[in-house]
């Protein structure tokens, strides 16, 4: 496995959420993903798997909390803060 990355590109994450989780619906980086009901529980798990794929580092389940997954920006901040 290559060296883990400590950043995730919000634009790339936006594309993933829009294409894979929202059936093509546009989404803003500061739009509520979970509280809005846009992303369901399977979607959260897809997001976790995607972050692990992109960064090459596991996401501990204790980190899967609202603060870290509320929006695309929150996810990017969380990944950046893991460094």
């Amino acid at each position: 496995m290559s060296t883990p990355k400590h950043t995730i590109d919000p634009a790339e994450l936006t594309r993933f959420v829009s294409d894979k989780l929202l059936g093509g619906r546009a989404i803003a980086a500061d739009e509520e993903l979970l509280l809005s009901g846009l992303v369901d529980s399977l979607g959260v798990m897809s997001l976790v798997a995607h972050i692990e794929d992109v960064t090459g580092a596991p996401v501990p389940m204790q980190d899967v909390i609202l603060e870290n997954f509320a929006t695309i920006n929150a996810i990017a901040d969380y990944v950046g803060a893991r460094a």
């Binding site: 979970l34 509280l35 009901g37 992303v39 369901d40 529980s41 979607g43 959260v44 389940m61 204790q62 980190d63 899967v64 909390i65 609202l66 997954f69």
Partner: peptide, 10 residues
Amino acid sequence: PEVLTKLPAS
């Protein structure tokens, strides 16, 4: 709350 059903650790 509904949102917690998506966040099993919480």
